[in-house]
Design a protein around this nucleic acid. Structure first.
Lengths: 256, 256
DNA sequence: ACAAAAGTGTTCGGGTTACACCCATGG
DNA sequence: CCATGGGTGTAACCCGAACACTTTTGT
């Protein structure tokens, strides 16, 4: 029943795969940081030659997340600072030939690490809001991952994953502005970050700039970076903490 | 490679299944509404005789959600008012014999519909916070689904799914109190619901009660009931509507 | 009339927003 | 000493929490 060598072909004819949407911040032509993601070119049918999300089969002796991590390393050499399951896609017609179910993850990597991605004819970075027509339903998947990134940025501390261990508040604010695509008030941003307890000043400052030397901060680790899954949950189901993850802040219509 | 008749056995030895956590509100011994869910007893190894989530295989010609709906109908005769994908569970050791990946959904049903569930030796309702040891990792799954139900109740309109087309504010408040496990101020609850725009008075009142007749309300349908998936999204990723009023201001720490 | 639930009014305080203003450094 | 971003202060405003109070029915 298999028609291509690497497909996972089930007894009922359903293939099982894992893919990952990898986000990184990179400077665009005008020097403004924006959201980018690496794609790989398909080297076989269907969608031969089209750009697609990196992915592959799940081995019998590795977890779903393990498969995602392994695949990331093999195709892009990336070890993400953040990795979370996004959604399982399994519509009947999402692959033209074989029935295919994909468990999709999304990942965040630091800019310096992102630059180490092996670029070539078959791996390339794309601006997230300017993608070509991708293979399968991958445009839909990226849209959803982007929406998740943006809504989650509003209530969680995932911005860390885009930065190194020490950073200025301006750098942190740049991350938020790039992802949320809107300017933030530096004064209010500072206070919100300080009162949140997720960052603390290191005492150091960055000299050599053209103006007043900004302080350096680090993350306290007081909150969970990854909280999406059923595991990795530090808080009880009914507790109310700052790390209380929620999906879809923006879809809010009712409140109680 | 298959060793039991209904398992979906992949070429690499990975089984693929769909399960659903079904929630309904029922009165406990003291008459207070609480969260319940139906479980089915396993009739084969592994975990023969243990209680487990209803579930089954995905057919090649049906979507994941379609498989969940079909399975719900076959095992409990339920047609949920709300159905959303929860998570894909795929740890290597979650099933003792065969490697198994389960796409899990969670569902909400109305109390009247819940009473129609075919009860018997192999199907029974359990109070969500008083479960026995279940098969596989199903205790973990239910815990996660419960956490999802409770956190989502705080910012979305899923409470509808527990009620009929018309309801009093006291009934609606009962739903929130049962799920959130804490009393809510009737006065503030009324105002929040009214200003949210998700409900509107029908003009009718319920007579025959022992006290002042309460008004009946209905849902306006102005909001998405189901919003979790990549489909069913009505709002653009970056849109911020007037009704966006997010609950749980106390959860926001990192937003700017 | 009384009890009890429905429904309204009002105050208080925390948190966000907007923006004025001061600080420190390189040029 | 001036331009520029770093950093602080503050008043207005919004919204939820708390709770007093009025309304309307059945008994």
């Amino acid at each position: 029943m298999a028609h291509t060598g690497l497909d996972i072909d089930t007894a009922s004819g359903i293939g099982l795969a894992v893919s990952t949407v990898i986000f990184a911040l990179r400077r665009d032509e005008r020097g403004a940081p924006t959201v980018w993601l690496p794609l790989v070119r398909r080297t076989r049918e269907p969608y031969l030659g089209r750009w697609a999300l990196p992915g592959g089969m799940v081995r019998v002796d590795e977890s779903l997340e393990g498969a995602a991590r392994r695949n990331l390393g093999e195709t892009t050499r990336l070890e993400p600072a953040y990795l979370e399951q996004l959604y399982a896609f399994g519509d009947v017609d999402r692959s033209p030939d074989q029935r295919m179910v994909s468990i999709v993850y999304w990942a965040l990597v630091r800019p310096d690490e992102a630059e180490r991605v092996t670029l070539g004819e078959n791996v390339r970075w794309f601006a997230a809001d300017d993608l070509p027509d991708l293979a399968f339903d991958h445009n839909l998947i990226v849209d959803y991952a982007l929406w998740r990134l943006r809504t989650k940025m509003e209530y969680s501390a995932i911005a860390h994953a885009f930065l190194g261990p020490r950073f200025t508040l301006a750098e942190l604010r740049e991350v938020y502005e790039a992802v949320l695509q809107r300017p933030l008030d530096p004064a209010n941003f500072r206070r919100q970050m300080e009162t949140s307890g997720v960052i603390e000043p290191t005492g150091e400052v960055v000299t050599g700039g053209r103006h007043r030397p900004p302080r350096l901060y680090r993350y306290t680790g007081a909150v969970d970076l990854v909280d999406a899954g059923p595991l990795n949950r530090r808080t009880a189901p009914d507790s109310r903490t700052a790390t209380d993850s929620r999906t879809a802040t923006e879809h809010l219509r009712t409140s109680a």
